[in-house]
């Protein structure tokens, strides 16, 4: 357990300090949300209709930002090889990395999401649900994004490649989360979408560490 908590603290510290940490994701998120009304009709009724959807899809985009450095730095300086030799299985190491990514990028974005949605005209009552959905969705985004980041390790040209690999995989969480918050705003039952989102996040949390570890071993071989 102590190896686990030591690694977890290390990953959190790295993710928090890495190139501006969560501020970078928040800054991108704020910028993207600002651009959307500028490019579209700013009639409040028009904007309010798409407000939660826009704030939700920008979350998915913002979650891609810091993925590139998730494994790359450890891979380049040999840290990943040491971690692979250490007491923890590589699967657990990858899981810890994804969780740290979630806590340092997903959680701050989950706080920012209701603010963005309300600024775009969503009713304030949606804030708790949007926060919860963004937190859960962020977990799925981190797990799938981590898989893409680990796969792109062997190529050493990360960035855009990770986005191309990961975006199609993000379809289910985007649909489930967007459906839940949209249904809440429309006064419809929102629980099914939220439950599907939670199930998807749980499934991603359980399965993607194996894909991440396999991809890391492949890049190291």
């Amino acid at each position: 357990m102590s190896a686990f908590s030591t690694l977890f603290r290390r990953e959190l510290a790295l993710a928090w300090g890495r190139g501006g940490g969560p501020l970078l994701a928040i800054g991108f998120y704020a910028g993207a949300v600002t651009l959307l009304p500028l490019s579209a009709n700013i009639d409040p009724a028009h904007l309010a209709a798409v407000s939660v959807g826009l704030s939700w899809v920008c979350l998915a985009l913002a979650s891609l930002l810091s993925l590139e450095r998730l494994f790359e730095r450890d891979f380049e300086d040999g840290g990943l090889d040491l971690l692979a030799l250490g007491p923890l299985p590589l699967e657990v190491t990858c899981l810890v990395k994804a969780l740290a990514q979630w806590l340092t990028a997903g959680a701050p974005l989950a706080v920012a999401a209701p603010v963005a949605a309300i600024a775009l005209g969503a009713p304030a009552a949606v804030a708790p649900l949007l926060f919860a959905a963004a937190a859960l969705g962020g977990l799925a985004f981190s797990c799938l994004g981590g898989t893409g980041a680990a796969l792109a390790l062997a190529s050493r040209r990360g960035g855009l490649l990770i986005a191309v690999i990961v975006l199609p995989l993000l379809v289910p969480p985007v649909i489930f989360g967007g459906a839940a918050v949209d249904a809440f705003v429309a006064g419809l039952p929102w629980a099914p979408g939220f439950a599907f989102l939670a199930a998807y996040a749980a499934g991603a949390l359980a399965l993607t560490p194996f894909a991440m570890a396999g991809a890391c071993r492949n890049a190291q071989s």
């Binding site: 796969l151 062997a154 191309v164 991809a215 890049a219």
Partner: peptide, 25 residues
Amino acid sequence: GYIALRASIDDEAKAGRAGAILALV
């Protein structure tokens, strides 16, 4: 995504395994 991933990895064997993991995911 699969084609892009394989095309961006120079090492044939690594490209194959990374692509296989992506295809299974």
